[in-house]
Each structure stands twice: as C-alpha cells, then as structure tokens.
Design a binder for these strands. Structure first.
Lengths: 339, 339
DNA sequence: TTGAAAGCGCTAACAG
DNA sequence: CTGTTAGCGCTTTCAA
C-alpha cells in the first residue's frame, strides 16, 4: 500500500536541517553561494525526507519552468500520435520536460475559445511556452510563446508549422488527371483538421482548372482511419457511375480503399487508381515506400521553434513549411515524390 | 502576432467589476451565495477581460483539481501509445482532464527514484491522482491515489493493472512445442518493460518443463519495433542451426520476422512458425485477426480504477488482470486465442 | 450577500 | 554565506 501522507515541504526540510527556507531554496536551485557542508546537510535531509518540490508553488514564483506545454484535443487519435512522436523526440533532445494537456475529446475542445482557455491555463502558470495542435483560433492571448502545428487558419497571427497540403493536393490531382481520369473520388479527412480542408480545396481547384465540373457525390466524409476508408471506398465504388480513381485524404484511408477494391474484385491500378497522403505504418511490409514523416517532422520542428522563441523571448509571426509528401499506390508498388 | 501581456488575475476582475476578490472566487467556483446581478456582472467582466484562472495558484489552495496525471517515459513509443489510447477514451468519458508528464526519454526516467519524483511532482500539487506506466518502483509515497499500468514488479504495494503475460507465454510455447518444435527463437521486448520480462520467463519455464535445455543464442534482444524484428529475424534465421519457430515479444516484432522470412525465401508456416503478442495496426489488411486491445484495455481500466480510488479516498492494493491475447501467424491466416 | 485577511509552498530581493 | 521578509494568485475562514 503506498504511503499516503501530508507532503513534505521546504519548511520541513529547513527545520530538519537547521537552516532557513531560503537556504534550502538555494540548494534546490543550485545557487553557488551556499557553503559546501550546508549544502550536503540539506541534500541529505531532502533525500531522507523524500522531499519533492511543489510544482504549483514553484511555478507560481519563478519565471523559468523548463516545461513545455502541449495542447491536443485527443491523444489517442493517429494524427495526434504522429505529431507527438516528433515532439517527443525533440523534447528528449532538449533540456525541457513536456506537459501534455488533453480533454480526451476532439469535440470538447475544438472551439477556439476552449483552446484559448487551455493555452492560458498552461502558459500563464506552468509552462515556458506551448504547442497547440490543429488550432482553430486565429489569435491567442498568452504570457509565453506559442507555436501551432497545422492550424486551421492559413495565415495565423502566431508562429506555426504547416504542411504544403494545398500544393500537394494540386499536384497529385494533376497527376491523376494526366492519366486521363475524369471521375475522381475524394475521401475527406476530419473536418476539424485544417490540412484536410486544404487538400479538399486542392482537389476542387485542380478539377476546375481542368474544366471538369465537381460532382459532389464523389466527395465523401472520412476520419483518417482505415475502417472509414474501407466503408467510403465501398460506397464510392458501388455508385452507379463509380470513380476511376480515388484520392484519400491520408494513407490510413487509402489502405481502407485498397481493402474495398480487393473485396469488390477491382485491380489496382488497372481498374482503379488510389492515392493517399501521409503516413503508413506497415508500408514497408506492403512493399510500399517507407512511411512519410510529415506529421512527426511538424512536431519536431514546432518544438525547435518554440525553444528558440522562449530563449529569444520574441514572438515572430513565422510560418514554417514542411513539405507534404505523397504516396501513389499502384498495386503494391509505389511512386513517391515530394510535393 | 499573439498578444503577449501580463496575464489577467482575479484581482483585475475584482477591480473591474467593483467587487472583492473573494466574490469573484465564489462566482468562479459556482458557489450559490452570490446575488444574481453580482454574478452576471462578474461573469461579463471575466468574458471581456479574457480571464483564465491560474492553474498553479488554484491547485495550491484547493483540494479538488479535476485533473488526472499520467507519467510516461516516452509518449512516442508504440507501447505507450496503445495504453494512451485506452486512457484517452476513459478520460473522454469522465469529468476529468488529463495531464501527461514526460521526459521524452525512457532512459531518463526509468529509475525508480525518478518515477517517485514525477509522481510527487504531479500528485502533491496538480492532480487528484496519477497513472504510472511501466513503473520500476515497488512503492510510492504520494498524497493522492496512484494506479500503475504494467509495473515491473508482479506484486507491487499499490493498485495496478497487469496483463497475463507469463500465462500467455507458457501457453503459446506449449502450442509451439506441441507442433514438435525443439529449437524456438525468442525476440525480447524492451528490457525496461516488466511484461516483456515475464514473457521471457514463460519461454524459459515452458522449455524447462518440456525437458529442453535453453540455448541462449536463440534469445536475442529487441525493442518491440518492426525493424528490430526484421533484424533479429535475419540474425536468428542465418544461424548455423536456425530455429524452426520464432516467438516474438510482440506483434510489431513478429511482422519484422515475417519480412525476414520472406526475404530469406522461407514459407510460413511450412518452414517456420512465428508467433507474436499484442497489437498490430494493419492486421485486418494482412488477413489476420483484428488487433489485440490488451494495452488499450489496461489504460482504460486503470483510469476507471483511479477515479474509483479518488472518490473513495482509499488506497487498495488491488491488482486487475487483463487477459493478454496472443496471435499465431500462419501464412496470413491467424489462429487466435485468449490466454 | 459580501469583504478583509490569512495563508498554500515557494522564490527573490534585501539586509546582515 | 545566510536569514528575514514580501509577495505570486488563489481559496477559505471569519466577520460584518
């Protein structure tokens, strides 16, 4: 049974080692102006009493916290996970620790006002800066720097890391159009995610440029998962006048379409072209090119930027572009290109 | 550019609405003994000023925080991710928010003393309770309840959620032995993870029971990833006297072995049997049974237990067992069983 | 129904 | 080198 007791404070340590609280505080913060034997004595007492500093009290007084906040709506969602992988790595390489705040539900916290709330919650008290993922807000009021990963707004009033989703979408559409496809299905990503919206925009614009009218029936909702790709793939391919190519918003969905095509006896790429964005975990096993690091890269870069900002104490309204690569699936062989 | 300004405090709100701080505090905490018009006035000011309560100051004074802490060494690691998926879902269904604390590196925080530190950090100040993943410590001193997921220690002095790894390992080994295998390779999981160790123990014990001497060359390190499975698979299969079956510590590794076998022209299961534990993402696509929810379940249950403990304010030294399922890969068809 | 005042545990001047 | 003291922003008695 874990020992449950009133927590040890700096006062207890001070008393037990016969010094004042400020001396203990000095030892705690590695100040140099402490006599060696005093320091040793205090350290010994700290160890014996099992003292841990009170995070709340500490961050209330001191400017530097060595803590970076991350606000994500949903840590269990593949999209967030990929980003967090990159963030995690950058954190591991840095002197900062990471505090992730989540409400567990993308819908609870999607609203801009909620985001502002969580950002303030962390930045006004605990952290030196925060990363916000898939932010819907155009502006933030905050004490410390903030960097957004894949914000909904294209030109936000804060530093951000974005993928070249619109460009990538245009290029992949042009590729499909160059193959002669006229009816191209589109499986959307989550509507809350800005990058997914930009891919859709690229889809529409590419068709318009090619003089092809957009058939709204060919645009179906999705949520970045393989099951949804499967379901929507079946839906599209069972249409009276089915598409000859499908553009899935990400690779997870594309895998689902692949399954759907399999089931319906369609061969890829002879009967159907399928393209997808992003990241696939088992790509190598499937004989495809290794996975796209785009999201992880975004997370990694975001932390780098944030640390830079924390050090400089400036807030540049900078946008860092990460090239969104695309994967064209063709019968277990892949054409890849950086878009 | 984000507005960077001195954060709005309860004092500012009080001043602006012409009441005292205590009244604002009452409104903030939804106390009933506030005149309606006062409340409205204060609320309006809070909205206008964009006030957010200071988490640090707040949790320093009040007992209930509606916040659950999660201590994970490495959030980018597949093992942690699966657990977090379950945790995330349980949090979404609860009234609590989640605060994840990580150092970004499994090696930094693996030591028991570090864990104690992080647990205290959260539990003594910010959170109502914490979940600790893959804990190495046998005991914890903490103000609030704690629940461990997959601790290293089998019978820890705190509540925990554990998988039936030893049992599962025994059974799968007995299955392989019953097929007539005498030389069975074993690809380890991460050495820091207790459950991985228990699988290895099952491997050894099953062989001993069958009267087969353990060949230490057949036991190779791994880290739960597909690349490591691949590498170790090649290593094992290139031995002078290679194994006829390989037991990978989890399914990610098993996929790697599968690749290795492919490359070396071995057919499964005719030339080689491969078994793996845990979770695979593209299982369905590969024609295998859907993924094993074991880790996510553990996370989910852990939160449930913790909330229970927080409400009861008791600390039971309870162990919740989650059945670890196993997947036997046989040439893209799967035998599954609950162990 | 409200305000004044006392701290929560800590850090940071400011004296010695 | 060390102790005293004044708060950080908040909740919570205790009076009014």
């Amino acid at each position: 049974m874990p020992t449950r007791k009133r927590s040890v404070t700096i006062q207890d340590v001070a008393k037990a080692s016969g010094v004042s609280v400020s001396t203990v505080s000095r030892v705690l913060n590695g100040k140099v102006d402490v006599a060696d034997d005093t320091q040793d004595r205090v350290l010994a007492v700290i160890g014996k009493l099992g003292y841990t500093s009170n995070l709340a009290a500490r961050s209330m007084r001191s400017r530097k916290k060595n803590l970076i906040g991350l606000v994500v709506p949903d840590i269990g969602f593949p999209y967030s996970i990929e980003i967090m992988k990159g963030i995690n790595q950058a954190i591991a390489e840095s002197a900062y620790d990471l505090l992730v705040y989540t409400t567990g539900d993308v819908h609870k916290s999607g609203a801009a006002s909620h985001e502002q709330h969580y950002v303030s919650l962390l930045n006004n008290s605990l952290t030196d800066g925060v990363i916000i993922v898939a932010s819907a807000a155009a502006d933030f009021i905050t004490d410390a720097p903030i960097v957004a990963v894949d914000p909904h707004v294209v030109k936000p009033n804060y530093p951000s890391v974005q993928g070249t989703n619109y460009q990538g979408s245009l290029e992949i559409m042009n590729y499909l159009l160059s193959l002669g496809h006229q009816r191209i299905g589109f499986i959307c990503g989550r509507p809350e995610i800005g990058s997914a919206g930009r891919r859709l925009l690229g889809y529409r614009d590419a068709l318009s440029s090619a003089g092809i009218e957009v058939d709204e029936n060919l645009i179906v909702p999705g949520d970045f998962t393989t099951p949804s790709g499967h379901e929507r793939g079946v839906q599209l391919l069972s249409m009276e006048n089915p598409p000859t190519a499908i553009f899935a918003a990400n690779d997870q969905s594309a895998i689902g379409v692949y399954q759907a095509a399999d089931e319906l006896g369609l061969r890829i790429p002879d009967d159907l072209s399928v393209v997808g964005f992003d990241n696939i975990s088992e790509a190598k096993y499937l004989g495809l090119t290794t996975m796209d690091q785009c999201l992880a890269d975004m997370g990694y870069v975001a932390i780098q930027m944030l640390i830079q900002l924390i050090k400089n104490e400036t807030l540049e309204k900078q946008i860092h572009k990460i090239s969104t690569k695309l994967v064209v699936r063709s019968s277990c062989r892949a054409l890849t290109g950086s878009v």
